[in-house]
Write a protein that binds this DNA or RNA. Structure first.
Lengths: 157, 157
DNA sequence: TATTGTTATACTCTATAACTATA
DNA sequence: TATAGTTATAGAGTATAACAATA
């Protein structure tokens, strides 16, 4: 571990080695960093939360997906998806139409404004990615993504 | 990427490849998995949230740390630390004493009950770790931790 | 009877601003 | 004037249960 020179003004840092062996701790810390980067590059400029972003991009690549499918993909519970879609609907970004084959279900599609925002946000995400991973080589990044996928799948095989 | 056979009952999954290139997305997914594991192994049995756990363990290894130091270590804002410490105080796990050298500051220490719980939780975290990383070899796990640290530090060098 | 989606509610977490007491 | 910690309040995210419409 490299000697981390303290950039704090006054308060000396405390020893965190007792937590650093925990994968969950490291993931949570990295999550804070990437959420911060998201907020700066996409969240604030486009007024999108992480799930709103993910939902729009998913819909751009999966037109007509159902709320049920979105719930699974976004790891959200059904009522949360309803609230999320309500917000996007109110902004004129999506539309919900009842399915013909199963009149309980709905198909969600992006409006032109929604498509434009989704593609803009997706493009921005590529810029963001470049900044977040400057500390990593391309090979390291690929390894990191692969290992994270293994962890994510560990619980739901 | 291995062919992921769908275990869902009815609803077919939608294409998430449009998000999988984003490190933040992968980290968020892995975060869900590790939080679930934490909840099962530590959260529910010991009635501890992730930050409560981290706070107790930090105090076990850093007796007399100040709320300010805890705020930095836990990536929390000062008022949130106050609320957190209030909860732990109410459960008789910590004590706060005013500093002699600077009477604005406090030193937080674990009570005997707090120490016992902290050590028990810390031991449980080692069991949890074993389960979360069954999908990874020891070498993969070490690499993952190192890469995550690089990412976490990218924003606060 | 089971499923899709909605409503209502509550609980947690977090962020901000305003306050106190010390320095 | 600046800092450590608190209080109060509001916002976002998420979870549960109860419900309507459809299968």
């Amino acid at each position: 571990m490299p000697p981390r020179h303290d950039t704090e003004k006054k308060t000396p840092g405390i020893d965190q080695s007792c937590l650093q062996h925990l994968l969950g701790y490291q993931i949570a810390r990295a999550d804070i960093t990437t959420r911060r980067a998201f907020s700066e590059h996409i969240g604030k400029p486009l007024e999108l939360s992480p799930v709103e972003f993910s939902c729009l991009v998913l819909l751009a690549f999966n037109p007509g997906a159902t709320p049920k499918q979105l719930a699974t993909a976004l790891a959200m519970v059904a009522p949360a998806v309803t609230v999320l879609l309500d917000r996007l609907d109110k902004r004129g970004l999506i539309e919900r139409v009842r399915s013909d084959s199963d009149r309980r279900a709905q198909h969600v599609t992006l409006t032109p404004a929604g498509t434009e925002l989704a593609l803009k946000a997706h493009a921005q995400s590529l810029d963001m990615e470049r900044e977040v991973v400057t500390a990593l080589s391309a090979a390291e990044r690929a390894i990191l993504v692969e290992l994270l996928q293994k962890v994510a799948r560990a619980a739901q095989p």
